[in-house]
Design a protein around this nucleic acid. Structure first.
Lengths: 157, 157
DNA sequence: GCTTGACTTCAAGTTCACTTGAACTTGAAC
DNA sequence: GTTCAAGTTCAAGTGAACTTGAAGTCAAGC
């Protein structure tokens, strides 16, 4: 139990790849926890790294932080995910990715059929009016259908 | 050339599916144009509907409004896209969708390999550390890798 | 001529996931 | 005992894509 068992903000930041400000933000949001030193500094337990890896993975899948909080909270005793937890959840995520791929494939197929016709009719064109995915008009403001990260296009080549 | 050749905001909103406020916003952003009546009201030409269909499709692909503006501006004479323009551009978009699907498939494959190991190691796990897609640490603040629209999960069932 | 609904502008608000800045404290090294 | 990087809090800013609200105008029906 020497001091290698606790980690500072900068250590966790370096080893997790998250910015220190993000770590504080996640703590605010209840995604991770930290104890404090006598001087009020954050002291992270080693397992926070695994928890952050989980968060990173969930973000990659496309979960919102709110959803991630729910997933973490759903773990028995709100514990940091074990191997078994992780396997259960990752199977669930796998389904989610498959769904996303399916949606993109439908979009692509719609596009293919439109390349032929070139109509872009609001009423008829399956591509400009893909009602099976979601209505832009509903839900929260801002935010589109598709990737924002994947969207950033080809940086080189 | 009777008055059925021009459209009011509410008509365009109804027929395009965009909110009137969105139409004004797009005009501000230079994506669409409108002339004015003597009283200062917007009068849309019929072709604005095709232009909006184009915009809707581009949004579905995941283009930002800035990118859409560029695409529209790249059309000769900044005209509303013709069938030929649309075919050229949609081929380009098709590539983009394929890229997105590819990225998701890589993510899924990483997940599959992690279901086996359950490690979630920050250093080794290809899934929690998919360096081949993008670094969260770079670029703009906010915004994750994946769908925000696709992400909203299954509404029913 | 009055009501009513559709329209106008402009500023400010919304969501998400953070980052940035200001102002201050801690603690290890010298 | 001074210095200084690393840490703290809290408020406010960012960007994308719109929406909302306030306050006023237009035009058609009665």
């Amino acid at each position: 139990m020497d001091r290698h068992d606790v980690l500072t903000v900068s250590e966790v930041a370096r080893r997790s790849g998250f910015a220190a400000s993000a770590l504080r933000f996640y703590e605010d949001q209840g995604l991770i926890t930290a104890s404090r030193s006598t001087g009020g500094r954050r002291r992270y337990e080693r397992n926070v790294l695994r928890r952050l890896a989980f968060i990173r993975a969930a973000v990659n899948i496309g979960l919102t932080l709110a959803e991630i909080r729910v997933e973490l909270a759903s773990l028995p005793d709100s514990r940091t995910p074990t191997k078994a937890d992780w396997q259960r959840i990752s199977r669930h995520w796998r389904t989610r990715i498959d769904d996303q791929i399916g949606a993109l494939e439908r979009l692509r197929d719609g596009l293919d059929s439109c390349i032929g016709c070139g109509c872009l009719s609001l009423q008829r064109c399956a591509f400009s009016n893909p009602g099976d995915i979601a209505a832009t008009t509903s839900e929260a403001p801002g935010a589109a259908y598709l990737p924002s990260g994947l969207r950033r296009a080809q940086p080189a080549g």
